[in-house]
Amino acid sequence: MAAGGDHGSPDSYRSPLASRYASPEMCFVFSDRYKFRTWRQLWLWLAEAEQTLGLPITDEQIQEMKSNLENIDFKMAAEEEKRLRHDVMAHVHTFGHCCPKAAGIIHLGATSCYVGDNTDLIILRNALDLLLPKLARVISRLADFAKERASLPTLGFTHFQPAQLTTVGKRCCLWIQDLCMDLQNLKRVRDDLRFRGVKGTTGTQASFLQLFEGDDHKVEQLDKMVTEKAGFKRAFIITGQTYTRKVDIEVLSVLASLGASVHKICTDIRLLANLKEMEEPFEKQQIGSSAMPYKRNPMRSERCCSLARHLMTLVMDPLQTASVQWFERTLDDSANRRICLAEAFLTADTILNTLQNISEGLVVYPKVIERRIRQELPFMATENIIMAMVKAGGSRQDCHEKIRVLSQQAASVVKQEGGDNDLIERIQVDAYFSPIHSQLDHLLDPSSFTGRASQQVQRFLEEEVYPLLKPYESVMKVKAELCL
């Protein structure tokens, strides 16, 4: 049975990233139509530049190519590739079939990587351009969430054990800070992308030097003109047959890092959902379990974690691919890159769409948070109580021993009897502590235990987050809708 299948058929496997999760716009960027249309555009740009620099290419040939950029006979191309065992030459023939007058000058002087690699770089750039505003929107939604809850005390956790208090907004800023680093890295790697350009079979530009009869300047002009037509500021000066596969490492490393950030955020949300302090959106008709109707599973956060793990592992592909590119190139890269580049971007696209949807509907339960604080705060307040007693004339050592005994009794009630923490009640009825009984409410005010959390939130948002989001103001209103 021949390899390949009808990918629109229910009898043929289709990647869930495309069929179930990723956005239509990201799927289109990695589609065959987008790819092969870009090949034709690159052939047109090459012909236009070659004509401008004096090669015998007519206006009629150029116009014929322009008129057929979208006229792609995919069936013919597939048949040609089956016959020739070469995808680029299959599309040269297919393009030439609908451009008979231009057929002889299509791909003039070029090698397969002229269309293959340059198209990949265009796709990487455009895919990054799709991700950047999506990530900015996630940051914006979380920034709104953090600002609104900047002063809401909550129990902090280290080692997932109760620690000092923080605020809900401050905790959210930990998430935002990681995503801001990801946004900066995505922008950097996007701006650092260079075009492969017009380089020939081993990167020496020998074929173009021959076409222009040894004119170095025209060869350099050709490279520059096509690079500018493709919208790049610069091209690699040095290439082998391909652009260095280190570029793929750079791009997928940034995406993998984004995956790590999203995994951490969504894990926190899942843990908070278990504590009943916070939940992701839950639709009115949504079913959490087929057997347990009360369940409210954090399905979206779980999906993000599941896909983020996949995204983090994909960076190993370009690392290994770059390491086995012998001399000017081997074909070890080809099949692998067809999979890992598309999957990385479709996965990143999915987790950003999902995280935006989550961040637009996060639900906080202040009463649950308050109750958990009441359970733990008495123990945390013991040092403040000791200091207040010393100020009232008591002995630190005597007070410490009193607190120690009462704390152990209260802990026994919590752990052995399943009761509430009654340390404060014990202190309130103990005559030894009568000098500070009137101060206990103040000493137990949760806001006095959150330090500068709310001020940190305000400063972080104003100095770091809002300036970073400013270039994306025009796209901030787009909502994230999930079908599944």
Rank of each mutant, 00 (worst) to 15 (best):
P10Y: 13
P10R: 14
R20W: 06
Y21P: 13
A22R: 10
A22K: 12
P24D: 08
Y34F: 06
R37A: 14
R37F: 10
W39Q: 13
Q41V: 06
W43M: 03
W45C: 04
L46K: 02
L53M: 08
G54K: 08
L55N: 11
P56C: 06
I57R: 01
T58R: 09
E60A: 06
E60D: 03
E60Q: 05
I62S: 02
I62P: 00
M65W: 02
L69E: 11
E70H: 08
E70N: 04
N71F: 05
F74D: 15
F74G: 12
E81T: 04
K82M: 09
R83I: 08
R83P: 08
R83T: 11
H86G: 02
H91L: 06
H93R: 07
F95T: 07
P100M: 11
P100A: 06
K101R: 12
A102L: 09
H107K: 06
Y114I: 06
Y114V: 04
V115Q: 07
G116L: 11
D120A: 09
I122A: 04
D129K: 15
L131K: 10
K134S: 06
K134I: 03
A136I: 15
R137P: 14
V138S: 09
I139E: 07
I139V: 13
R141V: 12
L142I: 10
A146W: 01
T154H: 09
Q161P: 00
P162C: 10
Q164D: 01
L165S: 10
T166A: 04
V168R: 05
K170P: 06
K170L: 09
C173M: 07
Q177E: 15
D182N: 05
D182M: 01
Q184P: 10
V189N: 15
R190M: 15
D191F: 03
R196I: 06
R196L: 11
G197R: 02
V198F: 06
K199E: 00
T204H: 06
Q210L: 11
L211F: 08
L211W: 10
F212Q: 08
F212M: 11
G214C: 12
D215R: 13
V219R: 01
M225C: 11
M225Y: 14
V226P: 00
V226F: 01
F236L: 10
I238F: 01
G240S: 11
T242V: 08
K246G: 02
V247H: 13
S253Q: 12
L255F: 10
L255D: 00
A256M: 09
A256G: 12
A260G: 10
V262D: 07
H263N: 08
I265T: 11
T267Q: 13
N274I: 01
L275E: 08
K276N: 08
E279G: 05
E279V: 03
K284A: 05
S289Q: 04
A291H: 02
M292L: 04
K295F: 00
R296H: 06
N297S: 01
N297R: 03
P298F: 01
P298V: 00
C305D: 05
R309D: 06
L311I: 06
M312P: 04
M312D: 00
T313V: 06
L314C: 13
V315H: 02
V315E: 07
V315K: 02
M316L: 12
P318M: 01
T321G: 08
V324Y: 02
F327E: 05
E328K: 00
T330R: 01
L331D: 00
D333P: 00
A335S: 11
R338D: 01
I339L: 10
A342Q: 10
L346F: 00
A348G: 12
T354K: 09
L355P: 03
Q356F: 00
N357E: 03
I358V: 06
S359V: 14
G361H: 15
V364R: 04
I369M: 10
R374H: 08
E376G: 02
L377T: 02
F379K: 00
A381G: 04
G393N: 01
H400Q: 02
E401Q: 11
K402W: 05
Q408W: 06
V414P: 10
Q416T: 08
E425C: 10
R426H: 12
I427H: 07
I427F: 12
D430Q: 13
D430K: 04
Y432F: 14
F433G: 04
S434R: 11
P435D: 08
I436L: 12
H437M: 07
D441M: 07
H442T: 13
P446A: 04
S448K: 11
F449R: 11
G451M: 00
R452W: 11
S454C: 06
R459N: 14
R459Q: 15
F460P: 02
F460T: 12
L461K: 07
E463F: 14
V465C: 05
Y466H: 15
K470D: 11
S474T: 15
L484R: 14
